[in-house]
Amino acid sequence: MLYINCPHCGMRSQNEFSYGGDASVKRPELNKEVSDQEWDNFVYNRKSLRGKHLELWQHISGCRQWIKVERDTATHEIFRTFKADEEVA
């Protein structure tokens, strides 16, 4: 079970969180013309990365905040975690 550092609450076990997918996906702006391809990329197309991956988790049984987690998908190593509004450098 992963041990995730919630930026709001501290180290918590994985069973308090729910997974939310790729954090690098940006939703197209509202009321903006979007091509089929762009929309498909937003809704469906994801890379199945091996290695470092920035992903979303929600601390669902804790502070209910969505957070960003930089995790290695092969080794499960967690490098850094970020608040939802934090820029990832």
């Binding site: 729910s18 939310g20 939703r27 979303l56 929600q58 669902i60 209910r64 905040q65 969505w66 939802a84 509004d85």
Partner: peptide, 12 residues
């Protein structure tokens, strides 16, 4: 969760 997702991440 859906509402929280949009409020926290998409339209903060």
């Amino acid at each position: 969760s859906h509402l929280e997702y949009y409020l926290q991440l998409v339209w903060p």
